[in-house]
Structure formats: C-alpha cells, structure tokens
Simulated scan of single mutants.
Amino acid sequence: MHQEGYVYRLMVWITRLAYLNILWVLFSSLGLLVFGIFPATTAMFAIERRWIRGNTSFSILPYFWEVYKREFKKANLIVLPFVLLSLLIYINLQFTLIMNEILGNILLLFLFSISFLLLLVLIYFFPVYVHYDIKLIQSMLFSFMIALSSPLQTILIIVNVLAFFIVSVFLPGIFFLFAGSVTSMITMWFAYRAIIGLENRNERLVRQ
C-alpha cells in the first residue's frame, strides 16, 4: 500500500514537472524566445516556490499566465544587465587572443573570476526574485550574499544540475521533457533552503 502511494506521488510530480516544462517552452516561444524566456522562467520559479512551500492545490496554467503577464516587461529589463555583462566578458575574451602572454593570462584569470561570480549571482537570482519584493540591485546583491553564505547549497545545486544533464545525455527524452522544469526545481529547492537558513540566522542575531 505504501509502495503504491510512493509510486502515485512520483507519477504526480513527474506529470507536474513535464506539464510545467511544456508551459515554459510554449510561453518562451510566445515571446519569440528572446522576450519570452525570462518572464516564462520567472513564472516557472514562482510556481515551484509555491510547490516547495507545500501549496500544490492551485491551477498551474492560470497562475503561470498571471505571473507571465505581470512580469513580462520587468523580467526582460532586469535580465538586461546579465546579458550586457556576459557580452562585455565575451568581447574582452577576444582581446586575450591578441595580447601578449602575460597580460593575456592576467586578463583571462580576471574574466574567469568575474564569470564565476556572475554565475553565482545568476544561480540564486530567480529564486531571490520570486521570494522577495525588492529592486534589481538588491536582488543581485542578495543573490551574491546567499551564494557566499551557503556554499554547501551552491555546490549541491551545481552537482545535481550537472548530474541531470549527464543523465539526459544517455536519455535524451528526459532533456526535452524536463530540461527547464527540473533544472529550475533543483535550483529553487536548494536556494529556498539557503534563503530560509539565512533568514533564520539573521533572526537569531537580532534576538541576541
């Protein structure tokens, strides 16, 4: 009986994640991908945050559409700095090819360091954005702060996402059905615990 219950719950979650991934792809395409992917990603993280907090009784499509519409303009604007920074890093990488070896290696090390820090911020950005009602700069700073204060959660996110992509190499169907929803669910799951952990630590400090 218990085994049947576990199998049923597993199938429910597989269905939810597959459905959410389909919505993510469709609504990303609705905005011609370039303009649709960021609001669709925001909506996907918002839904997964609700699931993680224990709220699974709401209708997925209406809530997805609500968040997508509300965040369409803002989500595209807030991701612009990430796009510009990535472009700037890429342009500077081209300069390393024509510089002398010493200066090129120094610039290369600097660019890799900046890229790593940008990756840390990006990992936590959407979980922070859907959890708090704060401005762009605050979201980026808070994402960076959580990444540094929760190294274990950061490592777990990276390891589990990489594991998912390794599995999907051998089972390509998994990638097409779950690429967006599983990657974001892994990120939201561990990021939410990092966020709550930081909030609890701050509360204890305030009480002291």
Rank of each mutant, 00 (worst) to 15 (best):
residue 152 L to M: 08
residue 61 L to Y: 06
residue 200 N to S: 12
residue 78 I to E: 13
residue 51 W to D: 00
residue 145 M to C: 02
residue 20 L to R: 11
residue 63 Y to N: 03
residue 91 I to M: 14
residue 62 P to H: 07
residue 172 P to M: 13
residue 128 V to F: 02
residue 23 L to F: 10
residue 72 F to T: 04
residue 113 S to Y: 12
residue 91 I to K: 13
residue 49 R to S: 07
residue 50 R to D: 08
residue 41 T to V: 04
residue 99 M to S: 11
residue 196 I to A: 15
residue 90 Y to K: 11
residue 88 L to I: 12
residue 13 W to Q: 08
residue 19 Y to P: 06
residue 5 G to L: 06
residue 69 K to R: 14
residue 104 G to L: 06
residue 34 V to D: 08
residue 202 N to D: 14
residue 101 E to R: 10
residue 20 L to E: 08
residue 154 T to M: 07
residue 185 M to Q: 04
residue 6 Y to A: 15
residue 184 S to Y: 13
residue 6 Y to W: 14
residue 47 I to C: 06
residue 172 P to A: 09
residue 77 L to M: 05
residue 21 N to E: 06
residue 76 N to S: 07
residue 43 A to G: 00
residue 140 M to I: 12
residue 108 L to T: 12
residue 134 I to Y: 00
residue 95 F to R: 12
residue 177 L to C: 13
residue 20 L to I: 15
residue 1 M to L: 11
residue 79 V to T: 04
residue 18 A to T: 15
residue 48 E to W: 06
residue 201 R to G: 14
residue 161 V to L: 12
residue 138 Q to S: 06
residue 137 I to H: 05
residue 58 F to V: 02
residue 12 V to F: 07
residue 8 Y to F: 15
residue 148 L to V: 11
residue 104 G to R: 02
residue 143 S to M: 04
residue 197 G to Q: 03
residue 137 I to E: 09
residue 57 S to E: 12
residue 94 Q to M: 09
residue 75 A to H: 02
residue 35 F to L: 06
residue 7 V to T: 10
residue 169 V to W: 12
residue 204 R to Y: 08
residue 81 P to H: 01
residue 147 A to Q: 01
residue 87 L to T: 14
residue 9 R to G: 07
residue 144 F to C: 00
residue 2 H to W: 15
residue 2 H to P: 08
residue 27 F to N: 04
residue 50 R to V: 05
residue 197 G to I: 00
residue 85 L to T: 12
residue 147 A to T: 05
residue 201 R to S: 13
residue 169 V to I: 15
residue 204 R to Q: 15
residue 38 F to I: 03
residue 150 S to K: 11
residue 171 L to Y: 14
residue 4 E to L: 10
residue 201 R to W: 06
residue 175 F to C: 04
residue 88 L to Q: 13
residue 152 L to C: 00
residue 164 F to R: 06
residue 64 F to V: 03
residue 4 E to F: 11
residue 75 A to M: 05
residue 198 L to P: 00
